[in-house]
């Protein structure tokens, strides 16, 4: 798996360099802000500060992460380049796991920059009393974002994989893949709600208030036990979906 990860990272070295450049820029911004170069924001400056120190970098980081994820997860499926990987004696589970590890590297870059630097820059600019996130709060935010992102990535990946496996020869396969994507999201959402209510982990939560995001797995809705349980369920779901992706590649590939 580590060998595959090595090639995934080599494949995406330009994106890694871009991530490092962004990190450097945000560090410089942070230093400049600490030195009170920008001053404290109010009125019109408040809007400018919010956009430049918070909004734009966060949008940029989200786009960066989405593009890196798409490139890592789907490149061998969308074109001929790299399909040599499917002729190697590597199981589908190992193949997908190495890709998820590569995504994890990019997630770490994006989330660390976002949580440690950008949010701090923005909040420091907006609220003079704002202090750096506590380590526990930081870890739980990263865990929450990681498990959430990985579940969404895998749901999207499995839906797309349908077009290259069981649904490769089906008419309207892309429309069907989209329906599978919606169905998996609904099942995932229901599963999370029922499980969390079953273990009495929700402090206040409207059960049938549908949102696209998995509502209950948000820290403010959960007790502490519920929060850890949600992480555990998230990790189990990620493993299950990785296993399912591997089985589809091993048993139903149609390139």
């Amino acid at each position: 798996m580590l060998k595959l990860l090595k090639y995934e990272l080599k494949s995406n070295k330009k994106l890694l360099i871009l991530g490092a450049v962004m990190f450097f820029i945000f560090v410089l911004m942070r230093i400049a802000l600490t030195g009170d170069v920008f001053g404290r924001a109010n009125g019109f400056n408040l809007i400018i500060s919010t956009v430049f120190f918070g909004g734009l970098p966060i949008v940029g980081l989200v786009l960066y992460f989405l593009y890196a994820t798409y490139k890592i997860m789907w490149s061998e499926f969308s074109r001929h380049e790299g399909r040599v990987a499917f002729t190697t004696p590597i199981s589908g589970f190992v193949f997908i796991s190495s890709k998820l590890l590569a995504v994890l590297v990019f997630a770490a870059i994006s989330f660390v920059i976002q949580l440690v630097l950008v949010q701090n820059i923005m909040f420091t600019a907006l609220t003079p009393s704002y202090s750096i996130l506590s380590p526990i709060r930081l870890i739980s935010q990263i865990l929450e974002q990681m498990t959430g992102s990985f579940k969404h990535i895998l749901i999207l990946f499995i839906s797309a994989l349908f077009t290259k496996t069981m649904g490769a020869n089906v008419r309207f396969k892309k429309s069907l893949a989209f329906l599978i994507f919606i169905a998996l999201h609904i099942v995932h959402d229901l599963f999370a709600r029922v499980l969390l209510i079953f273990i009495d982990a929700v402090t206040s939560f409207p059960l049938f208030n549908w949102t696209f995001q998995a509502g209950p797995i948000q820290l403010q809705n959960l007790t502490e036990a519920g929060m850890y349980f949600a992480y555990l369920v998230g990790i189990i779901l990620i493993l299950a979906m990785t296993f399912l992706s591997g089985v589809l590649i091993d048993k139903k590939l149609n390139l």
Binding site: E81, G82, R83
Partner: peptide, 28 residues
Amino acid sequence: TKTKSIVAYLPDRSDLYSWMTVRETIEY
């Protein structure tokens, strides 16, 4: 996966990673 270790396949289109050098394809 087991049979892939005894089957050498040359596809009709290049399936190598385009960013690799010849040395890296050998390493791969």
